[in-house]
């Protein structure tokens, strides 16, 4: 597995959702606030299930919440 950096727009989406707090998002997705903080800061890449749950809460497609640089997806031969 490569180290591809997954970016996210959760901070922006929270702002647009009436400044939803991290705690509220955590409660609605069933994780701790610390996990939401880690995801927002790019320190943790969520599982697909959690990623879909976050996208569902913001009523937006997954690719609008999480994105990745296409160059990072190309496997480099050693």
């Amino acid at each position: 597995m490569g180290n591809c950096k997954i970016k996210n727009n959760i901070r922006t989406l929270r702002f647009m959702a009436n400044e939803m707090t991290q705690q509220e998002l955590a409660e609605r997705t069933g994780v701790t606030r610390q996990t939401i903080v880690a995801i927002e800061n790019g320190k943790y890449s969520p599982t697909l299930e959690l990623a879909f749950r976050i996208a569902h809460i913001f009523n937006t497609p997954l690719q609008d919440v999480f994105s990745v640089d296409p160059d990072d997806l190309v496997l480099k031969k050693k």
Partner: peptide
């Protein structure tokens, strides 16, 4: 106190 453990934990 939060006793929940999630996927990151």
């Amino acid at each position: 106190m939060e006793t929940m453990t999630d996927e990151m934990d």
